[in-house]
Every structure is written in structure tokens, then in C-alpha cells.
């Protein structure tokens, strides 16, 4: 009985440690982000390090199937159009495992990007190694990286704006505000925001 009890306690400790380290491992605001290399829909590999001549990068975890992702597609394209020339291009990443998320496979990504006219890379997090490092949990989930002397520093985590359903009714354009602040040499007025989204689908 005693042995059983200690096994139980150990199990709880193990689980707790596993969860805490997981949360701690994810980048926090101000952390330096490691390089990643993922396959783009054109078949070519894209690395974060390819953007070292930029001011920064707007990383958007998004996907094909999620209605919230769909609602924001046009706004993600608009962000890229507005900020690419200013040195903050968009890099979109699909974090879902297509085996458990219907419609999020590589071929569907290509089709979606073509039909919507994506102006930015749409990368596939094959093996799901990248999104956990960012601590991404949902789609869409935005991470703004600022290039500080060739190091990418996480400067904003969260939503694109405060009204998913209706872009014209949005009062706060979180991502635009954050990038504008960064371009002006300031810290973003808001560094973390929240929004409803689809959970990232992981193989069971």
C-alpha cells in the first residue's frame, strides 16, 4: 500500500514537472528566438535566419480549416502588404498535424494560398517541433519578432485585433499598433492579448 502511494506521488510529481517545464520552455516576451527551417508551399525551405536583413518578422500560426483563421486571412494579407515594405514581413506557419486535422495537409495549404493569393510564405510545421517552442496554442496566433542586431527577440504574442468577426468594427489593431511602436523604436503598447481560436491539433 505504501509503495503504491509513493508511486502515485511520484507520478503526480512527474506530471507536474513535465507540464511546468513545458510552459517554461516556451518563449516569453523579450526572449531570443531560435532559428527554424520549414518547408514552404513552393517546396523550398524557409529559415527565420533568411530574414536577418529585415527589421523583424510577423509570425502567424494559422491553418486552412479553422473558421477564425479564415476570418483573418484577408487581414493577414493586408498586414503583409502594409508592413513588408517597412521591414516587417509576414511568415505564416500551419502547426496542425494533418492526420488529425482534416484539410490542413500540405496540398490543401498550397490550394488555399493560391486561391486567397497569399503574398507571404506559408510554411508547414512538419513534425510539430516549432509551434511548441513558441507556446502557440491556437490558430490564428501571432508572434512578432524584432531583429535586434541579428537576433530575433519576441516582442508581442496574441491576436491580430479585437474583433474577429468584423474587421471594420475592430477598435484596437493589436498587431499594427505593436509593429508601429517597434518601428518607432518603442516597446509595443500591448505585448500580450488573447482571442478565441481553434486549438492546435496534435497527433493522439
Amino acid at each position: 500500500m505504501k509503495a503504491l502511494k509513493s508511486i502515485f506521488v511520484l507520478a503526480i510529481v512527474a506530471v507536474t514537472v513535465a507540464f511546468t517545464t513545458k510552459a517554461k520552455d516556451a518563449y516569453q516576451i523579450g526572449d531570443k528566438v531560435d532559428n527554424f527551417t520549414l518547408k514552404n508551399i513552393d517546396g523550398k525551405m524557409v529559415s527565420l535566419n533568411d530574414y536577418k536583413d529585415q527589421q523583424g518578422v510577423i509570425v502567424v500560426f494559422t491553418c486552412n480549416h479553422c473558421p477564425y483563421s479564415k476570418m483573418y486571412e484577408d487581414r493577414i494579407i493586408a498586414l503583409d502588404k502594409k508592413y513588408k515594405s517597412k521591414g516587417y514581413p509576414v511568415v505564416a506557419i500551419n502547426p496542425n498535424d494533418p492526420a488529425v486535422s482534416q484539410g490542413d495537409d500540405f496540398d490543401s495549404m498550397k490550394e488555399r494560398a493560391k486561391s486567397k493569393g497569399f503574398t507571404f510564405p506559408y510554411l508547414f510545421d512538419d513534425g510539430q517541433k516549432v509551434f511548441p517552442k513558441f507556446g502557440a496554442t491556437r490558430t490564428p496566433h501571432v508572434f512578432i519578432l524584432k531583429n535586434e542586431k541579428k537576433n530575433f527577440v519576441l516582442s508581442y504574442i496574441g491576436a491580430i485585433d479585437d474583433n474577429a468577426r468584423d474587421a471594420s468594427s475592430a477598435n484596437e489593431l493589436y498587431v499594427e499598433n505593436a509593429v508601429d511602436d517597434l518601428l518607432a523604436g518603442k516597446s509595443p503598447r500591448k505585448t500580450e492579448t488573447k482571442a478565441i481560436g481553434c486549438s492546435i491539433k496534435v497527433a493522439k
Binding site: T137, R138, H141, A159, K194, A195, I196, G197, C198, S199, I200
Partner: peptide, 12 residues
């Protein structure tokens, strides 16, 4: 979302 729980990211 924070009003529901501070730890919630918003994923359902």
C-alpha cells in the same frame, strides 16, 4: 477570456 480564467489562451 481573462475573465473566464487568466491561464486560458483562448483555444477551445
Amino acid at each position: 477570456i481573462n475573465g473566464v480564467d487568466k491561464s486560458w489562451s483562448g483555444a477551445i
